[in-house]
Amino acid sequence: MENPIIELHGLTKYYGTVKAVDNLSLKIGKGEIFGLLGPNGAGKTTTILMMLGLAEPSDGQAVVCGINATRNPIGVRRKVGYLPDSAGFYDNMSALDNLMYIGRLNGIPEKEIVSRARSTMEMVGLGGEMHKKAGAYSRGMKQRLGLADLLIRKPAVMILDEPTLGIDPSGIRDFLHLIRQLSRQEELTVILSSHHLHQMQQICDRVGIFVEGRLLAEGNMETLSRSLFGKDSFAVEITVRESLPAAEELEQQLLQLSGVTGVGINATTVALSCHTDITPDIVRLFVQNGLDVTGVHKKEYGLDEIYHRFFEHNVKKESFQWQVH
């Protein structure tokens, strides 16, 4: 990658003896939308805080916009906007005043501040409600206000921690659309953290998968699924009406088909994995054997499967429950 805007080199963070982030190295390019994906407690927020110089790394370094975040946190924070997952506002102040306060803290001249705050509120679609008290805002409106809060500073990088938490589905769609649009318009680099697979899939150019402080894989959907599933990139599941009489015999026959790499037989379902798409051949074989096929389901590997593949070995850790839509 040429001229990455964010470089993490061997970033490590201990909380006591617990390793929250483990030797993390990552590069993110300008204008990219990068998704940090992982269950709760995977070290996403800690990584973000280290990028902002709000937490000290135990080892390694984070370089953002060419500035070392630990040595010069103020310099980094001038360029990077951060929306924390539980961002709050001063409830007794109007939304516009909240925004202007942040603007002033960032040294926006007094002459420009009102017009800039207003235009930012328009940009995130809160133009009509800018004089309401922030306490009267709904969760979705607060997230938009948080976005305005980042945009008024004209940052080079936006970091949003769990930005879609607690917003209704249509709100999420609009919000993500807004982020994507703004990122493209202003050539903003955006980092999103989430444990929602589909949302990340919708807007991210690249994702990194975090588990227990380690980055297990990174890349776009295509490379991720190739690196994870290797040759088994197709999977077919076939359901029959009655339980299979001669399971072993069927298994042998299926394995002889070219391209099939694995067969798993349950009472009434057969799961197959194969290199190439040979669903018609498989169905034909079932029909020739006189089995009543009631369903054929071809799996496509989306982020869901990527995610599951990572966590299926981790089932014992029931502490996280992610949502799969």
Partner: peptide, 14 residues
């Protein structure tokens, strides 16, 4: 508790 502290400290202020 209001969540304003993190947001405030993420600004370029000491």
């Amino acid at each position: 508790n209001n969540g304003t502290l993190v947001r405030l400290l993420a600004q370029p202020v000491y």
